[in-house]
Write a protein that binds this DNA or RNA. Structure first.
Lengths: 221, 221, 221, 221
DNA sequence: TATGAATGAGGTTTCATTCAT
DNA sequence: TATGAATGAAACCTCATTCAT
């Protein structure tokens, strides 16, 4: 189930057309779009949003530049289509986590959260690149997604630490979110042994924090 | 003592020229270099490394494009000079922290670490932009600095958690480093009340982790 | 059949794309490429390789600068495409000379050689400029072509002076090649009467040399 | 007596100031000028007239750019000063040849001519570069020098071939001049064995031509 | 629809030359 | 006089985007 390196897993099934993207009408069109998104993804990962060029993306997809613009009217639209695709997948993961949270200890929850995000980042490397892309990609999508992820995390925390004051929910979710980013960032570290040790440590830090949240104010009850 | 928004604090005293930068030799030159670095810093912060243009940087510094290139032969050299300057300041902070660590509890250490990094990021916003800049800024400096910061954190942990197994030192330092990045990232969040609550939570998470490290294996003693 | 002054004769038929040049694929593209090569040729002749600018070449061809770079990714590639075209023509002339050599006296051979080169230079003025261009055009093509021309001359000499020692063939060819360069250079001289007289003299010098080569060691036979 | 490679032999003795060059007033100035000319010479040889930069020339001479412009108000003036110096040396050689011509056979004359020019080019490599420099160096000096050399050659031919019709003198001188250029060009050829063989051949061609000139119309007398 | 050609503003960088100290 | 800073026109080249076939 591993993706070829540098190529994100993009849904090839009929997609909800993102805004700014013309919906392909036929089978042939779908293949094109998938190839274009895949090419875009690997370009963005390898060179970053700014340095990736529409011409090269088209070439890598075996398409002409005109063809690329037929489906994605701007570079930004292309990036946003990718982000939207990736976000959809991430939302799915989060929803599954929310459902499963009730049965988990802090240790288990910590492990699942970190594994989910680390795996996601391995499978969707371009997501990170695009969401972190500086002022050059002036999309609001990143912000929206971050907030939605934060919502999922809030739900999870509400389940895991039911006694937590309502006002502490979002700040805690923000911290957990940052720890997820950390888990993702650690994936770049070399050598592998160090990376794994660090990930173990991070899991431990997260577990401690989650346990603390879960125990908070419970004596009050 | 706060810097004007978007303008990093740049040393105006005679600088150690970074590699690739031509050193000014007259007073006029030093002033120019300071103005150029300051202009560069704000441009990079506002637009990111790629989108910032040499032309605008020169204009903002009230200099001609030729003047800019007199001292910084490439855009990359300019960015690296900035990074090097900022890194020097950061090293200074870290050294002070190392010295002070012995007297601190986990709570105090967590608070100091987070405050140091959050303040630093407020004073040197361009540092973050440049160190995180993607493939477009192909400098190795970021890597070097990250490793050196990690060294400082290892020292701090060795003092704070003397019983920690030597092999766990660096992984733990990596985790702390990621938490510092988190503290820095939280500085962008709005509104302020949420940001402060999140920072409190982060401090708590870090304190828990540090305490856990400090207590580890101590029963053995 | 004379070309307009300063404009080389460029093949308008589908060209073999030189290395580094993107091949046009539509009719419009072929016309563009021909216009661009022609404009480049006259610019190079008038100003030399260094002083000719891509901007002016594009303008002279009635194309935008982007169009120029679409087909020739660098100034050097443009020059090399020109050189390669011209070289092809020159090789054709040389092959015809080789075939005809057997029937000629030294006087005739001298006249034909000189006429061939002088005519060629009148029709392909940019060839000379580009092949002699100094370090600024770091192409290896010039070298290659020079050697190949020398090979043709060696063949001609082997036919014309069959008794010549094999080891003397290439040195003699080099001398003949230099005399060809001289014939080409004389084309710049003014006034015309002087030029013609000089060319007559040069023909005579070449004829003497060829005759001497042809007679060499023949008593041995 | 060999010059360091790549550095022309420039007169260090008080020089006749070229037009456009301010005469240095004192000893110190002379050294400066000599260093600057030497640096310029090697730069021009290595990179060609266009690619050589005033900044690098100054740096190589251990001088500041301001200092360079103190003595040579433009790049062109610098090149012309160099040319003028070299030309002076060449004129000296030619004058000595003229004086010695009467005693020489055609073979000897050919050998002497070729040796003179080949040696000269080895000692003054920048002369060739500058005189051949294309439209970028719009000096008339090259033309003037070429004509003066042609005059010397005419004198030599008048002595060596006294029966030659007056109208044939200059055309013949032009041909000899081209052969000298050939001798100079052959100096670049590799390997050395081939170069020497070619030079022998060239000497033979020149000798044949000179002998022919000398014998011409003599039966008439 | 698909393709490749066309566009041109704008980016980085160079360098001869001038100027102020 | 000597130095290094300042200048800015202009060079090469890129690339998102549009157009014509």
């Amino acid at each position: 189930m591993a993706a070829p390196p540098g190529v994100d897993q993009i849904r090839m099934s009929p997609r909800i057309p993102s805004p700014g993207m013309r919906a392909p009408q036929r089978r042939r069109g779908h293949e094109r779009v998938a190839a274009l998104l895949s090419a875009a993804s690997s370009c963005f990962v390898e060179k970053g949003y700014d340095a990736a060029t529409m011409t090269e993306i088209a070439a890598r997809a075996g398409a002409s530049i005109g063809s690329l613009y037929q489906f994605f009217p701007t570079k930004e639209a292309l990036a946003e289509a990718l982000i939207a695709d990736h976000a959809e997948a991430l939302y799915g993961h989060m929803e599954r986590l929310v459902v499963q949270t009730p049965g988990w200890s802090s240790d288990e929850l910590a492990a699942r959260l970190i594994r989910t995000f680390a795996d996601y980042r391995r499978r969707h490397p371009s997501f990170v690149v695009l969401v972190e892309a500086g002022g050059s990609l002036p999309s609001m999508l990143g912000r929206t997604i971050r907030h939605r992820i934060r919502d999922y995390l809030s739900q999870i925390l509400a389940i895991h630490a039911p006694a937590l004051a309502a006002g502490d929910l979002r700040p805690a979710a923000m911290v957990v979110q940052q720890l997820m980013k950390a888990a993702v960032a650690l994936h770049n570290e070399q050598p592998a042994s160090l990376r794994q040790a660090a990930q173990t440590q991070l899991r431990s830090a997260l577990a401690l924090y989650l346990k603390d949240l879960a125990e908070q104010r419970q004596p009050t009850a």
